[in-house]
């Protein structure tokens, strides 16, 4: 280390780091841990997915090749599950970003008590999912639930209907619960991104006589678009993973109308005791999640390049 200290010292020091093994020491514990509790079980699932294995006798399994996958392709229950998953995920993404954006725009303007308002809006995000499932299940109760009483009061229906038992209403009811839980996250993240909107630009646009929507389109949206893209990815992946709220409220029913892939996987394993097919569902779900992520990186890189050119 006889070189004189310079601007490049940091980079040089990093490049000529004498110890090749030190980084390995740093990542070894976490690597071993994740190998044991994430990747080894994941690999087991892959193997399980090409076997026929019952939960009652997991010790004896027979290799069946791609049979599980082939059977899933023609399984109407699985097709429905894919459809439900797509609807659930798209509504979660679009709904929570739309509601979050609205809330963020409302809370971005200065007013008295804004700090308190920003804190209170995050309450649903902080509530445990099991508690959310409990309170919404009670609110959907056919006789005494608030939703039933309200629709009766407003004259929409005679009441006495539990949305969670209605094939056409169960998924919307689950979506209301989920959106209530996750819209604050979108709101808070978008709110943080809004701080990056150049205020001079916004003021200039207003002086030029631009209406609110044009200001939003021309000034606000370009600034927060990367954040919205990122939220799309996060909420997609979370929606594909979500288990607790759906399982506790409907267990995938009625008639499979809320049976997302993760619920389908759990049902096949613990209700139908078919571990092989459950694992195959999991593998397909994982492939979908990875594809979504790859598309996300592809799109965000392309838009980055496109905006860079301008």
């Amino acid at each position: 280390m006889t070189r004189p200290p310079s601007h490049d010292t940091a980079i040089a020091a990093r490049k000529t780091d004498p110890s090749r093994w030190l980084p390995m020491v740093f990542i070894a514990p976490v690597t071993l841990y994740l190998l044991a509790f994430q990747f080894y079980p994941l690999v087991q699932q892959f193997f399980l997915s090409v076997t026929s294995t019952s939960l009652l006798n997991p010790g004896s399994s027979t290799f069946v090749g791609a049979d599980n996958y082939r059977e899933l392709l023609t399984d109407p229950e699985f097709a429905q599950s894919l459809r439900v998953t797509v609807v659930y995920t798209v509504v979660c993404v679009v709904g929570s970003i739309f509601l979050g954006l609205m809330a963020a725009l409302l809370l971005d303007r200065p007013f008295r008590g804004r700090g308190l308002a920003r804190a209170l809006v995050t309450v649903p995000w902080a509530a445990p999912p099991v508690a959310a499932a409990l309170i919404f299940t009670w609110m959907y109760n056919a006789q005494y639930g608030l939703f039933s009483r309200l629709s009766q009061f407003l004259g929409f229906s005679a009441g006495g209907v539990n949305w969670l038992d209605e094939p056409s209403m169960a998924l919307p009811a689950i979506l209301i619960t989920t959106l209530w839980q996750i819209f604050p996250f979108s709101a808070v993240v978008i709110l943080a991104a809004l701080q990056g909107v150049p205020s001079e630009l916004r003021e200039a646009a207003v002086i030029d006589g631009a209406d609110r929507f044009s200001v939003f389109k021309a000034v606000v949206w370009p600034t927060i678009r990367p954040t919205v893209t990122l939220l799309t990815l996060l909420i997609t992946v979370w929606s594909l993973r979500r288990f607790d709220v759906i399982w506790l409220m409907t267990q995938g029913g009625p008639l499979g109308e809320t049976n997302t892939l993760v619920i389908d996987l759990y049902r096949r394993a613990f209700v139908y005791l078919d571990l092989g097919k459950a694992a195959a569902v999991g593998v397909i779900g994982l492939v979908i999640a990875v594809l979504v992520t790859v598309i996300y990186f592809w799109v965000s890189q392309r838009t980055e390049a496109a905006t860079g050119k301008r």
Partner: peptide, 11 residues
């Protein structure tokens, strides 16, 4: 991207 539910059985 791994759902918890997917790893329940092997874990």
């Amino acid at each position: 991207m791994l759902p918890e539910a997917m790893l329940v059985v092997p874990l």
